[in-house]
Design a protein around this nucleic acid. Structure first.
Lengths: 228, 228
DNA sequence: TGGCAAGTGTCGGAATCCCGACAATGGTCG
DNA sequence: CGACCATTGTCGGGATTCCGACACTTGCCA
């Protein structure tokens, strides 16, 4: 698989993968947790690895997890997710393999839903199943809209959008320009150029491997700018 | 809403909207048909219109339906779908409005699943609901892969891919270059250029509002070509 | 302290694509 | 037949992005 393909897969995982996606209501989760296993992971250990058969879905309770794909000897971080995020569900329902690896960054606690337990539970509780279906489709629709907004926009707008999103989730942004480029499926140089342009507007401040959002509103405006 | 936005919406509808998407097994459909209304539409009449509240999903039994969006006085055909296609389900589950209009081209027969009947049915039959869920997510995954393949490719490869797909569905292709451009979210001139390039390879023959696939294999090869 | 790997900033050329404009041709309807 | 609209084919300018290359900075570790 070529480099370009991996870039696109990373882009996809960011756009489609559902970091911080909580498809169910608290009541649903309570029902679900009766069949969940509680798992704890020490830093730098894996929840699952890319290519493993997807036998379970996970719900992060606490801690931070990196989703990444392996390319040769490098790791491309696709997304950094936190509490409330559900991961692995698409691959699990699709009876395929995980599309990325999930590694605990700090100490992580999570709920693990094994497929052989989750499927019967859903089959027994139609309301739960139906809700999961509806939530999933709604999320799909939102994702569609999001992609439209992004895909034919200038690199500057894409970067601004990503920064807005990341800063909302984790305050300060610790991503290298190369990582941002991977997430967006563009070249590193373009990201550099875009960051420079945004910095000149005063919306952000950049440092080594760190970006600080100074003016969030300005950032949103930049992200919304059309391409003409 | 700007022109560019509409282009992207059209692109989305083609990529995400599920023309010719049959998520369920024949057994499932038999169960579903007990709650379906059979509807018949004369040529040029509508199944639903863009913006209508999405109160039902449809399964095409026979005939051809155009999905289009209205832009000012023009109609942008998003997709032309045939028997087996399910439409309107995402909007229906999401409790929103239809994102495009559906108009019968020839005489059309279809099954109509009203929301207030379908939801209880799914709630009563967990297996059916679960299967819909799994099928939907699997389709989502396929779509993701497909988009990755398409999105950072040359216009020529995109056009070749579209032609391959269309010819498989409806033998001969009756689309104007402007329509193709809308479907792909690119400019008409680029489509013209791409068609010319493909024609020169001998893979297709073009005529007024009609394209004939001469060498399907060559077309697939062109669609797979990377961008370097 | 001195490398060394990782990350950043910048340049210029090449490729792709968009956009506006215009001419030429096909189909339709009075 | 003739007017008229839709469609196709083509051109050139301009904008954006990719790519390879290189110098510089930062953080880490022996």
């Amino acid at each position: 698989m070529g480099l370009a393909d991996d870039q696109h897969l990373a882009w996809m995982a960011r756009s489609f993968g559902r970091p911080d996606y909580l498809p169910l209501t608290p009541e649903d989760l309570i029902a679900l947790r009766s069949i969940a296993e509680t798992v704890t992971r020490q830093p730098r250990s894996h929840l699952f690895r890319e290519g493993d058969p997807a036998v379970a879905a996970y719900l992060i309770e606490s801690g931070t997890v990196d989703l990444y794909r392996t390319r040769g000897k490098d790791r491309d971080v696709i997304a950094r997710i936190g509490p409330g995020a559900v991961l692995g569900d698409i691959a699990m329902f699709g009876e395929g393999t995980y599309m990325s690896s999930a590694r605990a960054m700090g100490r992580v606690t999570a709920f693990r839903f094994p497929r052989e337990k989750l499927i019967p539970e859903l089959a027994q509780r139609p309301a739960l199943c139906l809700r999961w279906l509806v939530a999933g489709l709604r999320q799909l629709q939102d994702t569609q809209r999001r992609i439209i907004h992004l895909m034919h926009k200038t690199v500057i707008a894409q970067v601004a959008d990503l920064l807005t999103e990341e800063s909302r989730k984790h305050g300060e942004i610790e991503l290298s320009q190369a990582a941002i480029a991977t997430l967006l499926g563009v070249s590193r140089q373009s990201v550099n150029e875009a960051l420079g342009a945004i910095r000149r507007t005063g919306a952000i401040a950049t440092a080594y491997r760190k970006i600080e959002v100074v003016d969030a509103d300005a950032l949103v405006r930049i992200a919304a700018e059309p391409k003409p």
